[in-house]
Design a protein around this nucleic acid. Sequence first.
RNA 1: GGUGCCAUAGCUCAGUUGGUAGAGCAACGGACUGAAAAUCCGUGUGUCCCUAGUUCGAUUCUUGGUGGCACCA
Length: 303
Amino acid sequence: MNRKSPQTLIILLGPTGVGKTALSVGIANHFQTEIISCDSRQLFREMSIGTAVPKKEILNQIPHHFIHSHSIFENYHAARFETEVLELLPGLFVRHPIVLMTGGSMLYIDAVSKGIDDLPDVDPELRATLQERMKKEGLERMRAELKLLDPDYYREVDLQNPVRILHALEICYTTGKTFSSQRTKTVKTRDFKILKIGLNRDRTELYDRINQRVDEMMAAGLEEEARNLFPYRDSNNMNTVGYRELFDYFGGLCTREEAIEKIKANTRKYARKQLTWFRKDPDIHWFHPDQETEIFNFISNIL
RNA sequence: GGUGCCAUAGCUCAGUUGGUAGAGCAACGGACUGAAAAUCCGUGUGUCCCUAGUUCGAUUCUUGGUGGCACCA
């Protein structure tokens, strides 16, 4: 029988600091494959320390994709990630029956595994204009505008969330159609198999690791890295934990110690938010990061 | 050793003219489709230091402790 095992994308996910990087090296070596990083900040080449990019030795040892592949001056988003990953994968599958994607960017994971609706890119000028109007005229007015342009979406959107309101307006103005009519929420099927492996550990242990990692980042020179990026602090892409808190310190809004504590707290908060998102995904198979052998066996049995 | 001040949530503190208490931060939960490490929403978790009084009732007033801080010796 000519049984060809289907090409499989393994998605290794979990909260920040749980130990994904270490395990992904083990999996990539064991299954002789490459790694696609699924991290909305590690793909920017301007940041390294604060985004916990894997060490050079690791990057040299195993081919990584989407690390330092783009610039903070680009307009990057989940849909672009979906497109670029789907373009990259066929080539990788030629050489490897399985490919590993590792990361914790929830929406990016969903974009690759489930797809994201087809929407046009938004003109930066339109975005700036609407942002300006939101600032001047207030949330209430923009809401009223959305109610007129897209009553269906108005009914289901979080009316307190300015980003949601603005984005819907952006799409309405860009396409001339309602946002709701273009939100199909269809789950796209892929021509490869997807296996999601989730990593989690005891909460206090996770927090200890996060706190310690922030201290290590500071010791490794995060402050200087952030200082060099201070001129770009208003960029959306620099609204990043580990940098924005230091920007506050540079701007005289808090002390250095307060900034460090804030980085730790915001990283813990982010980890919690990730867990909230992952919790509702029934496709994830959960493991402790120490269960390397179990995870190898689990993957082998599925293949 | 003496005098004064303080003791309330995990932390910093507010408050109760006597009716068992609330802010910020932390913590916890949730939403989420081109900004997603973003953005937004919700939840108070408590021997009010201990003891004995006064009182219908004390976290609040009084006595005596204990601990901390400051000043004087």
